[in-house]
Amino acid sequence: MIVKNEERHLSRCLQSVKGIVDEMVIVDTGSTDATKEIAYSFGAKVFDFEWVNDFSAARNYALMQSTCDWNLVLDADEYIVNDCKSIIRHFIETNEGVVGRIKRIDEFNQNGERRYAQSYLSRLLPKGVTYSGRVHEQVDSPFPRKNVNVEVYHDGYVHTNKTERNLNLLLQELKQHPTDDYVLYQVGKQYKLLQQLNMAEKYFEESYRLVPLHAWYRHSLVIDYLYTMTVNRSFEQGLQVIAIEQKRLDDSPDFHFACGLFYMDAIFCHTDRYAHLFPLIERCFIRCLEIGETEKYDRVRGTGSFLAAYNLGVFYEVTGQIEKAVHFYKRAAHEEYEKAVGRLNRLLGK
């Protein structure tokens, strides 16, 4: 781990891994709170590293201090939530020249609602594997990636805002690598978090133009790009992207969910021009439910279940198909989606 002023989260993280790992290596980049004392209390080996505005430099220094053949990399605002000690041991014993990808659940707020996104991250590393990239650093290895059933919860997006810091580091990186599609994407994400959506769209567009078809983050880029174009009302550009991606991402609930919202906004803003898209709204959310909560892509929980069902309920309620609306509200309410419960109660007069 690399840490700085993480006294709020560190105990929770270390408590979750202390029975799993052989040693804890923590590199501190300048804490002024009780972070180091907490680390020592768990028996961790603590090293100081002067911060040089480069996350990979700090990560690689931490990896150098490890005496183990494999390294599990975590951040202080993450913690393991499943019983995975034997799973990790089995993975290590049966794999060589492979990088393990663990599942991370990110809690975030959207429109006043708590949402959860899940993604697989390369975090179980054989000795000798290192990082590159100043910020949003990536594992730099030709080894294949394989998913391992380790589940980590992350609530750092809710409690802290490091967007400005990350953006500054990414812009420095971009000066050195102006056509790096991944860095362009990450810059766009930071502007999106800052609600500077015109800037976000600009960088997403540049990244989309350059990103290889096989890039692991391409799916997420397309989704972020679509949501940004929806808010910016860049409807013609959005329709072009949807047409390009339609077949390739037909098995992605997040793609169809984003398309459904895109069509709704396009029709709302320019009814005459986009009225022909109206039937596609229903089709998109039905397709989400057909696919379900797939593990193939990084995704937001609910796009293949209760969120899509709720939006179908709204669609049918608005179009006067009350029986269908009640059916899909019930489906979403069954998964304890509160907005669906509220709409259902109003429809049923409760």
Rank of each mutant, 00 (worst) to 15 (best):
N82R: 10
Q65G: 02
V222N: 05
S86N: 13
L312H: 01
T303S: 11
T271D: 08
S234L: 12
D69S: 03
V129S: 06
E107G: 05
D180C: 04
Q321C: 00
M199G: 04
Y116E: 05
V211S: 01
W216A: 14
S119Q: 14
R218C: 05
F235N: 02
A325G: 02
C13R: 00
Y120H: 12
Q172R: 07
A325Q: 01
F255S: 10
R89L: 10
S11T: 06
H334V: 03
H90W: 06
L344G: 00
N232D: 14
A266W: 10
I244K: 14
T228V: 15
R343G: 04
D22L: 07
L197W: 09
E164N: 09
T29C: 07
V341G: 10
G188Y: 09
K162V: 14
H90D: 15
W216Y: 12
T319G: 04
Y116A: 04
I281G: 08
V3E: 00
V3G: 04
K175Q: 14
R233L: 09
L170H: 08
E6F: 09
S119T: 12
I80R: 12
K146G: 03
A325E: 00
E6T: 14
C288E: 03
T160L: 08
D54P: 15
L74W: 09
Q237C: 05
T271V: 06
G100K: 03
G320L: 02
A76T: 00
Y274R: 05
C269D: 08
I242T: 10
Y185M: 15
L249S: 11
K85A: 13
I26F: 00
L184C: 02
E164R: 14
V135H: 11
L280Q: 13
F235Y: 07
Y185L: 11
F55I: 09
K103Y: 10
I242N: 13
G349W: 04
Q15Y: 14
N109P: 03
G292L: 06
E335S: 05
F204Y: 13
V3Q: 02
I87F: 05
V300H: 05
A325Y: 00
E293K: 07
K103M: 11
F91T: 00
R331Y: 07
A309C: 12
L10S: 03
C284M: 11
I80K: 13
F315A: 05
E164G: 02
C284V: 09
Y191E: 10
H214F: 05
K175A: 08
Q240K: 05
V99E: 07
R114C: 07
E205S: 15
I87S: 01
H177M: 11
M1N: 01
S86M: 14
I244N: 15
Y182K: 12
E173C: 07
Q195G: 00
Y182H: 14
E50M: 15
V73R: 07
L72M: 08
Q321Y: 02
A333C: 08
A258V: 11
Y40P: 01
T29I: 13
E295P: 12
D33V: 11
R8P: 06
L348K: 01
D22G: 12
Y337A: 06
Y297N: 15
E6I: 15
P212R: 04
F91H: 02
D140C: 09
V318K: 00
N53K: 14
S31K: 10
V46K: 06
K202I: 04
E37H: 01
V139R: 09
L14N: 04
Q196L: 07
K36A: 03
V17M: 07
S207Q: 01
Y157M: 13
